[in-house]
Simulated assay, not measured.
Amino acid sequence: MSANGVLVAHGDRPREGGPDRKQVEVAVGVLLRADGAFLLTSRPRGKVYEGYWEFPGGKVEAGETVEAALRRELIEEIGVTIGAVHPWRVEVVDYPHALVRLNFCKVHEWSGELHMHEGQAFSWEQLPVRVQPVLPGTVPVLAWFAQERGFEGATHAGE
């Protein structure tokens, strides 16, 4: 984390687009089951950070709200229609390939069966998470869960 509140991922790598690059708005769904488990999906083959685990979601298109983007992305990516969207936290992550503003939203209700339309894998997780590697922008969420739940110890395996 840098002084300006931006999480810098892989700070040793050069940044694409230079110092004045535009932030990309991203809607992220934190799907939570009644037992407290949360859904993580793997990044699809051919995408940046392929195979890393993250919460599902995607880019907010021009003229779209975070909620509308999240609804669209979760249907497109994992085949579920979500109920109420609860905006939770925002995290800015400076990845080598993009500067992203992650709008994390909790979702407790959805309909439809999970179907990974992009060939990704999914896993219902508890703390500490078992899947690895975890995308840098996902790590703060695990810490937030640990804080909310009074969890002592590592937030993901290998810590």
Score class of each variant (00 low, 15 high):
V28T: 15
R72Q: 07
L31S: 01
V28Q: 09
I78R: 00
E54G: 00
A9R: 03
L7S: 08
T41A: 12
R71H: 07
P56S: 14
W53G: 10
K47C: 08
A37P: 00
A27P: 06
L7T: 08
G36W: 11
G11D: 13
Y49S: 03
V24H: 02
Y49C: 01
V8C: 04
F55C: 12
G57F: 11
E67L: 05
G79L: 14
A34N: 03
H10A: 13
E77F: 01
L39P: 01
H10L: 12
I82Y: 06
H10Y: 15
F38I: 11
P19C: 08
V26E: 10
A69S: 15
M1W: 03
G57L: 09
T41W: 04
P44K: 13
R13A: 15
H10N: 14
E16A: 15
P44Q: 13
I82W: 07
L74Q: 06
E73Y: 02
V6S: 00
E16Y: 13
A9Q: 10
P56M: 10
G36N: 11
A3Q: 11
L7I: 13
E50Q: 10
K47W: 08
L40M: 15
G63E: 06
P56N: 09
R15E: 14
P14C: 10
A3R: 07
E67M: 05
E54W: 00
G29I: 01
V26S: 09
E76Y: 09
L7G: 07
E67T: 05
T81M: 14
V60P: 04
T65F: 04
R43T: 09
E25W: 04
I82E: 08
W53H: 11
E64V: 07
E16T: 14
G36L: 12
I75T: 13
R13M: 15
L32N: 03
V30Y: 01
G29H: 06
I78N: 01
V48D: 02
R21C: 10
V48N: 03
G18M: 08
V28D: 10
L32C: 05
Y52Q: 07
T81K: 14
L70F: 02
R21P: 06
S42Y: 05
K47V: 06
D12W: 13
S42V: 05
G79T: 13
L40C: 09
D20R: 11
G63H: 02
V80F: 05
H10V: 04
L40G: 08
L31Y: 03
Y52S: 08
R45D: 13
G58K: 04
M1E: 08
V26F: 06
I75E: 14
G57Y: 04
F38Q: 05
E54N: 06
G51R: 06
M1G: 06
A37N: 06
P14M: 08
K47N: 07
V8F: 02
L7K: 09
K22D: 15
R71C: 06
R43A: 10
D35V: 04
M1C: 03
R43W: 06
R71W: 04
T41H: 08
V48P: 02
V30N: 02
W53T: 07
